[in-house]
Simulated scan of single mutants.
Amino acid sequence: MQTERLGSQGGPACPTFTSKRHSMGVCSIHSNPHREHILATGSYDEQVLLWDGRNMRQPLSETKLGGGVWRLKWHPTHEQLLLAACMHNGFHILHCQQALEASGGACPVVASYILHNSLAYGADWSHLSLEEAAPYSPVAAEPKESLTESGGHLRIQYESPTASFDTSLEDDAGRYIPESIAAPVFSSKEDAPSLSCLLASCSFYDHMLHVWRWDWTPEEAQQEPVQC
């Protein structure tokens, strides 16, 4: 793994740092969009390493995930959450707060998604906000069914090789409507906020794309990981 500096013509001149901390090929590198200097690397050696670009001699943390780490994605709004696609071992969400605070130790896995039946290759967070309800469509003059009365339509989110499927509710413009319109997404349990996220994952040989929802509260970072 190398970081490079630009030459006078704008191209890479020479590496500013070279690391062989990973024992096998590096597959993914992703800079944290919220924390300057913080980046994550994933490798065939099944390790996720977090780094501070100001001191690349030693990683902030090392986390073993049991599968070659092909893709890494930081959450678009929550700096401590990192999504990893781990080839033969599914998809995992890491909670990296302690590492970001330079406390050391592996990042705990707070959720795992294992419903794909092939190599876990691609994964990303949706930038669609679930914090605010999508606007309702005007109610039809003569509604023919309850879904029309509520201003929404059911849509299959994904279908797996075993023919199981999930559905979501959307408005006439195709925008996602959360299941509980009246209830706020951020609730409180002893003042602990909750988070609802929409994610997409894809696998290699079966050509499958899955869209799934993850509901989480920060206190779960100290508990056993949830399998979706």
Rank of each mutant, 00 (worst) to 15 (best):
S8G: 05
S31D: 07
L115W: 11
A141C: 10
E219M: 10
H30I: 02
H88S: 15
C202V: 08
V139G: 13
L100S: 05
D215L: 02
Q98N: 14
K73C: 11
M24Y: 10
D172W: 09
H34D: 03
S118M: 01
V26T: 10
V226L: 08
T217L: 01
R57W: 07
G53A: 13
M24I: 01
G174F: 07
W70D: 08
G66N: 07
H37K: 11
I114Y: 13
G174T: 07
G42F: 00
H78Q: 12
S194N: 15
S118F: 03
E219R: 12
F186L: 09
P59S: 04
V185D: 06
V109Q: 04
S126F: 06
T167Q: 12
W216I: 05
R57M: 07
E220L: 09
G151P: 08
P225I: 01
L169S: 08
A84F: 02
S61D: 03
G7C: 04
M24N: 11
D215I: 01
L81W: 10
C197Q: 09
V69C: 09
S129H: 08
W212F: 15
C14Y: 14
S112G: 10
L169I: 09
W74F: 14
R35E: 14
A123K: 00
A102Y: 12
Q80E: 15
E145M: 03
H78C: 07
D206I: 05
N89T: 02
Q222R: 06
D45Q: 06
G90D: 05
S61K: 01
E219A: 13
